[in-house]
Simulated assay, not measured.
Amino acid sequence: MKKKLSIIMALMLCISIFAGCSSTSSSKDNSLDNVKKEGVLKVGLSDDYPPMEFRDKDNKIAGFDIDVANEVAKKMGVKLKIVTNAYDGIFLALNSKKFDVVQSTVSITEDRKKKMLFSEPYINGGCAIFLKSGDNSIKSGDDLKGKVVGCQAGTTSQDALSKLSGLKDVKKYEATTDAFLDLQNGRIAAVVADPMVGDYYMVKNPGKFKKVEKYLGKEPIGAAFRKNDKALKDAYQKAYDELKKDGTITRISNKWFGYDVTKGDN
């Protein structure tokens, strides 16, 4: 009887050990190994947010985030593959493994941090209000009451506008370029977007737009990873930090903005 009991206990111990090993194996973070094995870092973005990510006159994907992602991939020893996706579905696409990371001017919020991992912030963005030049009727978010305001769908700008009362309507666009076009043509009263993005439109269209001094909110921007992909996130961060230290990021920023947008507030 004792012998049988010892055998049973030994079998149970083996099963327990095997189950533990199996659990450990299944929960192992292979995110970086998979990227290295494939030799490609797949970056998801919405190609409609100049100067961060957009299609240039030759229909090629260009922008600050693309240049940064390309340098990060090279530093990691892999090639970059850009995968485009509508912004309002980009995080679902990340979790379905359509790409490895989202680098598409993603604001880091407490709610998003519960669902994803983020790199350290590389730009301070937020929700700035842009108007047609000459419009002096709007000084802050309170003055948007009774107005039709535009923003890109699925962004924190949309979230910020949803918290304002008294708006006539919030018009949600797939592309911020369309929002600014409607603002220019008087179809909407204002556009809410990241400050450096709106600044780009102001530079590209001298005298047509202006920025309200008071923001609806300021937010850090970072690259987003799946919740369990810590190894990949850490490798990305290491590569970015090295590029920041050697001046590469500053050179990219100067190319697109004329100054280092990665330093301090915008």
Rank of each mutant, 00 (worst) to 15 (best):
F91T: 12
A93E: 14
N95P: 09
S96M: 15
K98C: 06
F99I: 06
S104E: 06
S104N: 05
T105R: 09
T105A: 15
S107Q: 11
I108T: 13
D111Y: 14
D111L: 14
R112M: 02
K113T: 10
K113F: 04
K115D: 04
K115W: 05
M116Y: 15
F118H: 04
E120M: 14
E120K: 15
E120L: 15
P121R: 01
I123C: 06
I123M: 12
N124L: 11
G125K: 01
G125L: 00
G126R: 08
G126E: 10
G126Q: 08
K132W: 03
S133R: 01
N136I: 09
S137A: 14
D142I: 12
D142S: 11
K145N: 10
G146N: 11
G146S: 14
G146H: 12
K147D: 00
V148P: 00
V148W: 02
V149N: 03
V149F: 05
C151K: 01
Q152C: 07
T156G: 05
T156R: 05
Q158A: 15
D159Q: 14
D159V: 13
A160P: 00
A160L: 12
S162P: 07
K163N: 13
L164T: 15
G166Q: 10
K168P: 08
D169W: 08
D169R: 11
V170W: 00
K172P: 05
Y173M: 04
E174C: 02
T177A: 15
D178K: 09
A179P: 02
A179F: 04
A179E: 05
